[in-house]
């Protein structure tokens, strides 16, 4: 059984078909890229998987369980964490606090325990901080833990978001354009970082990306969407040779 199974998934917004019977699997241990021209439905697919949108048809199974049966804030408890296309950080908070929110599901202390601070809540808090700081170190922002995220450059903000997703110990990480909007050197650094996420933290990844060299460098398999339909799937080399993919990107020859 694959970690993530997308089955005949369709999403319609009014008359617009954003996704049209798309199917593919992500097996545990893989790094899969989802590519396609703008408007192909990549982010829509992410939003269905994380329960932001409802599908019009088809299902998404996480370890065999339909995400439709999972409440949106419980998706992360089933091992699915994500980042956002244009970075959705909690802008008034520090790097550490942002990552601590990512650790929300790893602790349980409620409002009463936290207000009085009971010993259990204090212990959970310090364990939580330790995990968050380790993850901030892992993404290379150890020196910036106490800074407000809004003061950080965009490339750093992307790493904060990555740390926030990783601290929840996901099995599957959904990355929406991890290399989007950052400089050339930062793209290389991000590729190295994601390779370490895959090998050191043993996280399966599904990523949306436009940067082809980036995709070819870190992915095992590529799924290509165009106008909501899957037009190709295979290894990076296969996909690059596929005439349908070339046509979708460059237009008919």
């Amino acid at each position: 059984m694959a970690l993530l199974e997308v089955r005949e998934l369709s999403v319609r917004f009014g008359g617009v078909v954003a996704l049209d019977r798309v199917s593919f699997d992500v097996d545990a241990g893989q790094v899969v890229a989802l590519i396609g021209p703008n408007g192909a439905g990549k982010t829509t697919l992410f939003n269905v998987i994380t329960r932001v949108y409802r599908p019009s048809g088809g299902t998404v199974l996480v370890s065999g369980r339909s995400v439709q049966t999972i409440r949106s804030h419980h998706v992360i408890r089933h091992g699915l964490a994500r980042t956002f296309q244009n970075v959705a950080l909690f802008r008034s908070m520090t790097v550490l606090d942002n990552v601590l929110v990512g650790d929300h599901t790893q602790t349980r202390s409620g409002w009463l325990q936290a207000s009085v601070p009971l010993p259990g809540a204090v212990a959970a808090e310090s364990a939580s901080r330790k995990r968050a700081l380790e993850m901030i170190d892992f993404v290379g922002l150890g020196a910036h833990a106490e800074r407000p995220v809004a003061t950080l450059p965009f490339g750093f903000q992307k790493r904060v978001e990555l740390a926030r997703a990783l601290v929840s110990k996901p099995r599957l990480l959904l990355l929406d354009e991890p290399a989007g909007g950052i400089s050339h050197e930062e793209v290389d650094a991000m590729a190295r970082l994601l390779r370490r996420v895959h090998t050191d933290l043993d996280v399966t990844m599904l990523l949306v990306e436009h940067h082809m060299a980036f995709v070819m460098g870190i992915c095992d398999r590529v799924v290509v969407l165009d106008f909501g339909k899957k037009i190709a799937e295979g290894s990076p080399a296969e996909v690059q040779r596929n005439p349908a993919v070339i046509e979708a990107y460059l237009g008919a020859a």
């Binding site: 994380t50 932001v52 949106s72 804030h73 419980h74 998706v75 992360i76 408890r77 964490a81 994500r82 956002f84 959705a88 950080l89 909690f90 802008r91 008034s92 908070m93 606090d97 601590l100 929110v101 990512g102 929300h104 599901t105 602790t107 202390s109 409620g110 409002w111 936290a114 207000s115 009085v116 601070p117 809540a121 959970a124 808090e125 939580s128 926030r164 929840s168």
Partner: peptide, 30 residues
């Protein structure tokens, strides 16, 4: 009590909601 609340898990969850509900829910905040 308020000071304890806001600097621990529940307070962070509330601030996260204020700053972005979708991202807060994706982080597991109810």
């Amino acid at each position: 009590l308020a000071w304890n609340l806001v600097r621990h898990r529940p307070g962070r969850a509330m601030r996260a909601i204020r700053d972005g509900e979708v991202a807060a829910a994706a982080s597991g905040v109810n």
